[in-house]
Nucleic acid binder design. Structure first.
Lengths: 218, 218
DNA sequence: TTCTTTTTTTGAACACGTTCAACTGAACAT
DNA sequence: ATGTTCAGTTGAACGTGTTCAAAAAAAGAA
């Protein structure tokens, strides 16, 4: 009974926090408000969540679980382009209600030292689920990828996805119409690049790209 | 005399702030510390600078002036690649002492709503000086650029530069060796792409790229 | 000079994220 | 039943960025 009570209190606080984050954004929500809405003392929020950031990490974990089946459903197109678009659109749709407060989080997106960055060790799990999706899309559409590229292409696609998500977060156009256009145009370009880049003729070009990717990965 | 005194106080506060930012980083420095080191009351810092962020904006403005002659000196190579590398290296060298606290600023780099973002209206002046440098490098090295590409290429190069700077800021390798490598490898690639992309044969590829760039620019 | 207005300066105050010593009460041992 | 323990909970307290009424200093007007 003790455990159950504890889990309930924790859930109550998480729920109150996410509600407020959605309503007013991350930075604009105070921990006191979170505690108030959960009808709990300020300090208790810190008993369950080490910091305001950690609440977000919990949100990521939940997203990871929720997304798994949706991503699975997205893996049914015959063409690589269709799958890539589907994978990314699933995320747009799922995160839509939280677009505003995701913006605040993505603030420090580029800094791997920031716990909320998608590049941070803290986000490893979520990142790996994503990589697996891109691997699967390549494999199941029987996209031919040269041996030298095979190990890196999923990560390249992941970075491409992160770029699109970043653009989407800050896209102020009606219904994020610009992002929709960009997704459409860029996914076609990615397809062309992968196919063109696979020609034997392109080996030197691949070498150049791989050199860059390896420096980027450190 | 009134004016001079005022300017001195302002300078004293700015100096104290930048000293501390360099020593301990941006987030780790409090406005009280800044005021203390400047031997002034807390509130006075806010009389001269509307916010902690605004101090940084002043720093940008100073950087803009300081960089102008250095960038001018960098515009002497015969080859485009050499000039691009020189332009970017000038910035690395100049910002080197402030690398740490630049990281904190670049935090919200991607959000055009953040006043400190290089994409924000507040940074317009600095951005335009940068664009002019890339235009000049293209013109003076007599790089042939197709008409459809001419208007966009400087901005593309600017985005490329911003990417490198972001990488440099978070590059933890000794003396930012990885960034040096990346600059070398990527600048060669950029050169190849511009030359290849200029072939008449490449018109469809250019069209695709331009379509993307136009969506990105909104 | 003396009075008035404007600029500069002060430090207390506010709300924030976060910490912590202290308190409560359910679970278990005796 | 009584005592012990410890997860759960509280609210005051700290240092933060920022604001603001009021005091001090300087400049201008008489």
């Amino acid at each position: 009974m003790r455990e159950k009570k504890s889990a309930e209190t924790r859930a109550k606080i998480l729920e109150a926090a996410l509600e407020l984050f959605r309503e007013k954004g991350f930075a604009e929500t105070s921990m006191r408000e979170v505690a108030n809405r959960a009808k709990v003392a300020t300090g208790l929020a810190y008993y369950y969540f080490a910091s305001k950031d950690v609440i977000v990490h919990d949100f990521y974990q939940k997203a990871k679980s929720d997304l798994a089946p949706l991503l699975d459903a997205a893996q049914k197109g015959k063409k690589l382009e269709a799958r890539l678009a589907a994978i990314i659109q699933v995320k747009f749709k799922y995160f839509e209600p939280n677009r505003k407060f995701l913006g605040a989080l993505m603030g420090h997106a580029a800094d791997p030292a920031n716990p909320l960055s998608p590049f941070a060790p803290e986000s490893k799990e979520v990142r790996e689920q994503d990589l697996a999706q891109f691997e699967r899309a390549l494999a199941e559409t029987e996209t031919s990828v040269p041996a030298d590229m095979a190990a890196h292409l999923p990560k390249i696609l992941w970075m491409y996805q992160m770029g699109l998500i970043l653009f989407w977060i800050y896209d102020r156009s009606e219904g994020q119409a610009r992002t929709a256009k960009l997704l459409d145009a860029s996914v076609r370009m990615v397809g062309v690049l992968i196919r063109l880049g696979s020609l034997p003729l392109m080996k030197p070009a691949r070498k150049t790209v791989l050199e860059l990717v390896e420096i980027l990965e450190g």
